[in-house]
Design a protein around this nucleic acid. Structure first.
Lengths: 195, 195
DNA sequence: TGCAGCATGTAATTTGTTACATGATTAA
DNA sequence: TTAATCATGTAACAAATTACATGCTGCA
């Protein structure tokens, strides 16, 4: 399951352009399957070359022709097959957690800032989900509702965990900070930060 | 924050080989920052070339020399800087959610199987976290505890959500399945499944 | 006898991100 | 006048995954 397959799936409900798809990705998949133009446009070109999409070019003034893609019968079958076959992965790559793992090597202010930041992002994600739900209320099928609810529930749990355990972490690391400060060698300015 | 940086960070606590690091990744970062040998070995080579690590080769019989890496002072500073600079991302790519989004196009049995599978994986993840905690109880610093707790809390919430809302989803899609079956065109066998 | 664990690495491939390239319209 | 929206794409780059390549030891 990649961006290509997802484009095909979205176009199975209704035809649309690459630009439209990008917006769908933003509103529907933003938090668990983001995609940029750089993935979407090539995906559409590939799918068309494979005969899974057909493209109608609608001339426009002042902007590039709008290319509206529509699924072919073969495309529909291919997508159904992809859904059937899928052994769907759930891949997380969290620099946030990786950083926090090293909390004891960080200074307290920075750590606090990271935690606050993350809570804010989670809150925003929840708001975004609610917003999408209400904007699209009329056309929100069961799968979409489930997924949106899932995202909100998980984000809620994450935010709650940070709120509950963040202060504790801050306290614990501040103490080891103190210890470390006295052990500290000389100050070391101007370090390149990129490895 | 990439595999390279993380290797440096892990080696800041204690020296070790690529093989050792792989095991650390498995026990500590498995669920939010997995890494294979294919990323770790090149990372160690790069870090050594940059002067952030030093390598001691310990001859062994029957197996390749064990290469034990140790952080240099420059490496320590570089890692501290990386922690300071980081604007850590939290990236999720869930084929699972993407697939579920299209629940209505799937058959009920398959959908149920996907949900059950996911719950099982989440349960396993929670078990794995508990196991790691108890195995390493003695050397589990504040950051590690926070991260482990975070993972468990979020996985718990996810499993709970599926348990609570899965049946509902199954019911809703089974109905539209019925509708769809009557609308269905001809049977279509032997479809290539890879796009 | 066979598998898991120890131990290293390279190379090809896949996938996606970021930057580049262009340019009109409309609302604040 | 400045930013956002509409609208398309390519090319270079980054990063990680997968497959390949090798081979001993110890346990069941």
């Amino acid at each position: 399951m990649d961006v290509k397959t997802l484009c095909l799936g979205l176009l199975s409900s209704r035809p649309g352009s690459g630009y439209d798809l990008k917006k769908e990705f933003e509103s529907l998949f933003k938090h668990f399957f983001p995609a940029g133009y750089g993935s979407i446009y090539p995906a559409l070109a590939d799918l068309t070359a494979q005969g899974y999409l057909e493209c109608e070019e609608i001339p426009q003034v002042g902007k590039p022709d709008r290319k509206v893609y529509e699924v072919t019968e073969a495309g529909r079958r291919a997508f159904a097959a992809a859904l059937r076959e899928a052994e769907p992965q759930h891949k997380l790559r969290s620099e946030f957690l990786a950083t926090i793992y090293f909390a004891e090597m960080m200074d307290g202010d920075h750590l606090k800032q990271l935690l606050d930041q993350r809570v804010m992002e989670l809150t925003q994600a929840i708001d975004h989900i609610e917003e999408t739900k209400s904007l699209r209320a009329s056309e929100f099928p069961a799968g979409a509702r489930f997924v949106a609810g899932f995202g909100a529930a998980v984000a809620q749990a994450a935010a709650q965990y940070i709120a509950e355990h963040g202060p504790e972490l801050l306290k614990e690391t501040r103490q080891s900070q103190g210890k470390r400060a006295s052990e500290r060698t000389s100050a070391s300015p101007a370090i390149e930060t990129r490895l």
